[in-house]
Simulated scan of single mutants.
Amino acid sequence: MNELNLLPLIGIAVVVLGFALRFNPLLVVSVAGLVTGWAVDLDFFTLIETFGEKFMNARQLASFLLILPIIALSERYGLQQRAKSWVASIKSATTARILSLYFVVRECSAALGLLSLAGQPQTVRPLLAPMALGAAANLHGELPKHVKDMISAHAAACDNIAVFFGEDIFIAFGAVLLMDAFLKENGIEGIEPLHIGLWAIPTAIAALIVHLFRLARLEAKISQQMQAHTTSQTHNLSEELS
């Protein structure tokens, strides 16, 4: 009986160690691939050829990178500042209302399969988060860093949660098709992608209700933290004067 060769698994250790040390993910994965290739006795040129072949086969996965320079240029020329100033001019706009509206639109669009309609790099960072911050600043004045971080985190969460629960309704979504194939491979018949999509609707509605409730409480939380921040500043100032 041949002995089990565990040396090729060294690539997993490289990935775990690299991520634990917070190195660049692309660098960590590349090094892990090189180490794994060395462990299975691939010569250098074959290894490079394999890297190139896999990249070409999955090059469409990196197509989203094309939008990053556009977003960077837009931010450099004041996109975030424009979003903040525009929201500040709307007196009825609040952080919770902006995020709630985005959540509803994002979940509904994900249910229709329009996953690329918005997202973290192209919408949340340059538009949604600055708009939410602008609405809060319009009501409470200058925001401290911890309040800004909290609002930005809620903006990012809106996109993640809405997409996560909305995309399962779309019957052509990869995860739905994967579940359908898994059920059929294990002899479970009579379940079609349409059934999976329909059963995802109650979960999506529940996620919508829960998250809108959380966003409704966000306004009160912002007010509490701003009041505590103001009290702390006043106390510190009185101590310095005394």
Rank of each mutant, 00 (worst) to 15 (best):
L115E: 14
E142Q: 13
L114P: 02
A39W: 00
T230P: 00
A88E: 07
V40H: 10
P193K: 07
T36F: 07
I151N: 02
L4C: 00
S223P: 03
L99G: 00
S100F: 06
D168L: 14
L241R: 09
A39E: 08
F165T: 06
D168H: 14
L73M: 09
L68M: 11
I205C: 02
L117S: 12
G134K: 00
N24G: 06
L101V: 11
M131G: 02
P25Q: 07
V104T: 12
K91P: 04
G78H: 04
S63L: 15
V14K: 08
L183V: 03
A132N: 01
V40C: 01
L21E: 11
E185Y: 06
L68W: 02
W86A: 15
V35C: 14
E192G: 04
L143W: 01
F170V: 06
R217W: 11
Y102L: 03
V15S: 09
F55N: 06
N186D: 08
C158W: 05
T50F: 08
V29M: 15
R59Y: 15
T123P: 00
L42T: 09
L194R: 10
L79S: 07
V14L: 14
I10D: 04
L73Q: 12
I188M: 02
I71W: 09
L215R: 01
A72Q: 13
G18D: 06
A220D: 15
A93F: 03
E185H: 11
E167S: 12
A96F: 01
E192P: 02
I169P: 01
G166F: 04
G37S: 05
L115Y: 13
L6S: 09
S232W: 13
V104P: 00
L61Q: 12
A136R: 00
A129S: 12
R125T: 05
M1G: 13
W86G: 12
K84P: 00
A96R: 06
A157V: 12
V105A: 10
G11A: 14
I90P: 07
L42M: 15
D43G: 08
A136E: 01
A83F: 05
S100W: 02
L73G: 06
I161R: 11
L4M: 05
L27P: 01
S89K: 10
A155L: 07
V29S: 15
I201E: 04
G166L: 04
A207G: 09
M179S: 08
L114W: 13
I90Y: 06
K91S: 14
W38T: 09
A153G: 15
I70Y: 05
F19S: 10
I169Q: 07
V31W: 12
A62M: 14
Q227W: 02
P144R: 10
I48F: 09
I90K: 13
R97F: 07
R22V: 07
L177K: 11
G166E: 06
G174I: 10
C158V: 15
N186W: 11
P126M: 05
